[in-house]
Structures are given as structure tokens and as C-alpha cells.
Amino acid sequence: MNHTGVDLIGSVFAQAKSENRALLIGYLPAGFPTLGESVALVEAMCDGGVDLIEVGLPYSDPLMDGPVIQQAVDQALGNGATPQSVLTVVKAVANRGVVPVVMSYWNPIEQFGIDAFAHELQQAGGAGVITPDLTIEEGQPWIAAAGGQDLAPIFLVAPSSTNERISRICQVTQGFVYAASTMGVTGARDRVSNLAPELVARVRASTDLPIAVGLGVSNGAQAAEIAKYADGVIVGSAFVTAANAGGVAGVRELARELAGGVHRAR
């Protein structure tokens, strides 16, 4: 079947919903620690039960990221990661039958050329792009370019977003809404932010799109807690830490634990 990116994301969320569970979403930067190893790592995520993968495009100035992801993208850049590496990893994910989206700061996409990026990502099997530093005010050209390839433009909402902003963000977002649960940068935290349930409730009031919660989730128990009320649970830094400590096996094991949390939550 010839699914568009937006449809693909919709159908994995629908599938999870029919199983009465949340989706497990995992992040790793492309080219970390090397291109070849990063392909093996995302495949391990797929095998361990991750439903949707965010492939990070390494950027020199990742303002939203804490030390763990900063070091990982530095390593990837040092080993020569480029947007081509991202496309390679996206293909590998798609080949496993798992839905890939890209997570990228804005400048690398702008320099690649937004239409070219949307086109090549679509060709590689990508379904959407999360743009953590692109505000909806600046996002119009990208929304049009992504729309031309049926890719989902995925924007973030934060605890500080007003209801009025949330509603405007939901109007231009497709696929799912990324609820950044914490006021802060990425990184595993001991406790899941208590701001998350309130934020998810406010987003629900604005949209029928699925809502995925990210920032700070690192283990199965935390994933289960979020999976009670959100449609997706996003895990990033913890996968980087698992890769650093245990490589492919470590990532597969973490994916299994998190998937277990998501499956038993409700």
C-alpha cells in the first residue's frame, strides 16, 4: 500500500488505540556513535518494541538538549554525520516496518532547502518532522513544504503555552502533538513532571490529534505512568545512555522494559 506520512502516523496510533495502549516512541541521533552503529541501534529499538522512531539530525547548537544528548550529537558530528546519515537511518527504520520521523533543529533543514528536505525525506520513507525550535509563527513555509509531500509537521506544546497558543499549534500540527512535559532541556529525571497531566488535558480540549509526552522519561514505571493518560510516550536521553552503557543489547533491553510499561499501563 502507498501510505502517506501523515496516514502512517495516524494508523500506528489507531492500532495502539485499538489495543488500548499508548504508543512507545524512541529517539536516537543519526550517526551516533557512528553511522553503522546508529543503524544497528535503531534496529534494536524496533526489535525491542518501539512503535515509532524519532531520528535526530545532529546539530552543533542543540538548545533544547541536556548534556547526554549534547555529547551524543557532538560525537555523531565528529564522526561525520550529515543529513544524508539521517536519511540512511530513516530508511533502515522504514525497512523494519516501523514509522520513522525526523527530529531536527531548524537551521540544518533551512540550509538543505526545505522543499528538497521534504522530498528526500518522503522518498526515504519518513513520515514527519519534529522541529523543536521552529515556532508556528516562523513555520508557514515549512508547513507548506511538508504538506506538499504529505509529511506531518509536528510542533511542540509546553506547560507555559497558553490555551490560545495550544489551539493555534494544534491547527497546523499533523500526526501527533508533542507535549514537552517539563520546563527544561532533555535529560532523564527521577520523577515524571507533574505538569504533564494538566498539559495533556489542555491539549485534549483543543484537538483530536494523538498527544505524545516527552522529556525526562527513563524507565518502564515512568512510561506506564504517562501511558495512562497520553497517547504516546517519548524516550530520548535514556536510549542514549543505554547505548553508551550497553550498546545494541542495552538499547534492546531498555526498549523491552519501556514497551512493557506501556503495554501494562491501562
Binding site: 515556532t135 509563527e137 516562523e138 513555509p141 511542540l156 506544546v157 509546553a158 507555559s160 520546563m183
Partner: peptide
């Protein structure tokens, strides 16, 4: 590329195609 076409010169905070706000939603 075409990416320079974000010519929102009339919006506050813009200077021709420059300026604006590229920040985390938070």
C-alpha cells in the same frame, strides 16, 4: 534555496527576512 523566502518583513520582530523567533515553545 527557496528557504530564504520567509519574507515576513512587515511582522514585528523582523528586518526583511531576518530576525524573528526560532525558540523552543517553552
Amino acid at each position: 534555496s527557496t528557504t530564504q523566502a520567509n519574507l515576513q518583513g512587515d511582522l514585528p520582530g523582523h528586518y526583511g527576512p531576518y530576525g524573528g523567533r526560532f525558540v523552543p515553545e517553552a
